[in-house]
Amino acid sequence: MKTKENWIESTLNSLDAIQPVSISFDLKEKIKNSIYESAESKVSSSQIWLVAASVILLLSINLVTMNYYSKDLNKTISTEEKNIVYQEYFINIIE
C-alpha cells in the first residue's frame, strides 16, 4: 500500500524538475516569415466590396439593356402588323 502511494506521489512530482524545451532557430524564422504568407493570402474587405460592386453594376447594366431592347421590340412590331402577318399566313394555309 505504501509502495503504491509512494509511486503515485513520485509520478505526480516527476514534472517538478522539467526543463523548458528550447525553440529551434528554423521554427522561429518560419514563424517570422509566416506573417508575410498570411498577409499575401489575406483578401482585404475593400477588395471584397470592390468585387461585389462590380458584380452588381454588371448585372444592373444587363437588366437595363434587356429591358430597353424588349420595349423596343414591342414598339417595332405593333399588334396590327402582327394581325396582318397571321391573316396572310392562315389564308395561305387554307388555300
Binding site: S10, T11, L12, S14, L15, A17, I18, Q19, P20, V21
Partner: peptide, 19 residues
C-alpha cells in the same frame, strides 16, 4: 516523452502525461 524531462523521471513522466 517530454524532451525536457529528466532521465530518471522518464518512465513516470510518460505515465503522468497519459493521465
Amino acid at each position: 516523452i517530454h524532451p525536457g524531462i529528466q532521465l530518471e523521471n522518464k518512465e513516470r513522466g510518460i505515465v503522468l502525461f497519459k493521465a
